[in-house]
Structure formats: structure tokens, C-alpha cells
Design a protein around this nucleic acid. Structure first.
Lengths: 151, 151
DNA sequence: CCAGATCAGTTCAGTTTCTGCACCGGTACA
DNA sequence: TGTACCGGTGCAGAAACTGAACTGATCTGG
């Protein structure tokens, strides 16, 4: 079992977690999901040191999650927009948000909720299986080697 | 909109992301989900520096995601087990795994897959809404202030 | 009875990374 | 002419990370 887990190393998940496990990265992406695109607004909202923000934005652009877009010329002004790859991370961030709301929130409840267009309700997200529609949690599933498994 | 996002600061999500955004944290939890409990095995599987591992385990225990359990006396030997709160993070990690498989994996496909007990298939996870069952993604949802919103 | 192996950690010194703060260059506005 | 805006950089000190060796207590094989 631990040998199985061990093969993950350096693989897709490892790389995903290496990207995402960089303190400010997910916070920046969260802002992006809420529509923030500008350097200055990111710096102000997050309270992140500006050189750190510059560094993170660069790695996110290099990784293809954000793109740096000229939005005004002379002097050239750039903003940062989510790419499709970046937008696909939304689910993971929402899952994290939900966990935080459940386990770390104050008594008042979550500071922000998500209105779901499909039903008009406040979204109550859970992970389900596309095949059977049943929930996926730690007990409902067993890991096994996939096609990209290396011996 | 950016003001809305801004209130998140220091809130549940912020804290969740601060915890999780610590390079090795999610990797350690991933191992834990696959059944790894021992210090030595974690160190070997992840290739994490041992002092770093010690530090991370301590913060995870302090945060209530793992518990340090005596499994053999004289000399006292401890292992690390997921708490319920830790187990609840499984969904978020799976979502991240899936994103990594989709955007960062090699051509062979994911190195590890999850067999879903409910249907016997390889789990194909997606985020859905408990109210309507429809998918939740960046386009399907709009953030708004929740009960814990602070002015 | 002794040499190794196990195992959860710690110590230490060196390197990398982060942080805070000031600052730049170019423009628009008053 | 002075100030505010805006994306971004430079620098020095603080904090975190890293690798390699080491600890202390026990068990195992010869």
C-alpha cells in the first residue's frame, strides 16, 4: 500500500501539489475566481508582499493557469486572467472552501456562499462519481495502479 | 466584487488555504489517505527532509487533522492517524488529483486511480450540488456574502 | 555478548525563500 | 506643478527549508 502511494511521487498529483502548495498560490486563484485581475487589487486584498506576488504571478503564468494581458497602453498596463486550465481548478478550491467552512469557520457560518445558477439555491457542493452519482469520500474508494503507473 | 472577495481574508478559507498551502502538507495527507501512518515511511515515500516532516506533522496535529498515537511502548513509538476532520479533506485532495491528472499528467494517464465501491468502476469525480445534482464549476455559480460576512 | 538494524525523532550549518519598505517610470487629473 | 494611480523592482534582514549526521532505546542474528 505504501509502495503504491509512493509511485505518485513527481507524477501529476505531485506536480499539482507542488504548484498549489506554495502558500499564496491558491489565495491568488481564489481572488481570480471572484473576478480580481489587477496586480494592485491582489496586493491589497491579500496583503501579500509585492515581490512575492510578482513571483507567484510569474509561476502561475508559466504554468498556464493565468495569462498576462495588456489592458491599457502607454504606459503598458497588464492584468491577469484565468485560463481554462486555471478555471478547472475551481472545483478543488471550492472543495477546500467547503472544508474550511465546516472545520475552521466561526459560529456565524461562512463569510461567502455560492449561488448555484442551476437551482437558485446556495450551492452545497459534494464530490460524486460520474458513473453512479454516489458520493466519493475516503471510505467509498480504494486506490489502485492506473495506466500511468511506473514500476 | 473584489471587496466581497476581500472579506475572505483570515476567514475559514484563508485559514484552510494557509494550512494547505505549505508545500508538503497535502502530500503528507495524501499518504495518510493511502494508509501510511509511520514517520519513517512518510519520510521515505515523499523524500521530505526529516526536520521538515517533523514540523509539518506537528502543525497537522495541532490543527486537528492528524493525531499522534502511541503504537508501541518502550521505546515509545508514535504513528499519525487521520482524524475525521482530516478525512474530510479527502474530497479536496481528490479534486486536486483529478486536475493534475487532466492538466499535468503524461500521455500514459494517471499513475493511480480510485476504484469506487458503490459502482465498481474507476471513480470519475466531479463536484455537484446536493440540492439539484447539477455540476458546480466556475461558470455555474456566483459568490455572495454569507451569514459570517463581516462589514 | 556483541554487531547491526529499526525507528521516531533532533541538531547543526548552509542555502533558499519570504517579508517589509522604499522606490521607479509613466501617465492622468486638478 | 503637485498629487494620485499603477504595475513592478531592489535591497537587507528574517524566516523557512534542506541534507547529512546523530541520538536513544530496543530488538535480532550470530
Amino acid at each position: 500500500m505504501d509502495d503504491l502511494a509512493h509511485r505518485f511521487e513527481g507524477e501529476s498529483v505531485g506536480r499539482a501539489l507542488a504548484l498549489v502548495g506554495e502558500r499564496w498560490t491558491l489565495l491568488i486563484l481564489r481572488e481570480a475566481f471572484f473576478g480580481v485581475r489587477r496586480y494592485g487589487v491582489l496586493a491589497r486584498n491579500l496583503g501579500i508582499p509585492r515581490p512575492t506576488l510578482s513571483a507567484r504571478l510569474r509561476t502561475l503564468v508559466d504554468a498556464g493557469l493565468l495569462e498576462r494581458v495588456l489592458y491599457a497602453p502607454a504606459p503598458d498596463r497588464y492584468e491577469y486572467r484565468l485560463t481554462d486550465a486555471g478555471r478547472d481548478l475551481f472545483g478543488a478550491i471550492v472543495a477546500l472552501m467547503r472544508w474550511g467552512d465546516e472545520h475552521l469557520a466561526g459560529p456565524e457560518g461562512p463569510p461567502i456562499v455560492l449561488r448555484h445558477h442551476a437551482c437558485g439555491e446556495i450551492a452545497d457542493p459534494r464530490l460524486t462519481c460520474r458513473h453512479c452519482g454516489q458520493e466519493i469520500d475516503a471510505h467509498a474508494v480504494t486506490p489502485e495502479p492506473g495506466p500511468g503507473f511506473r514500476a
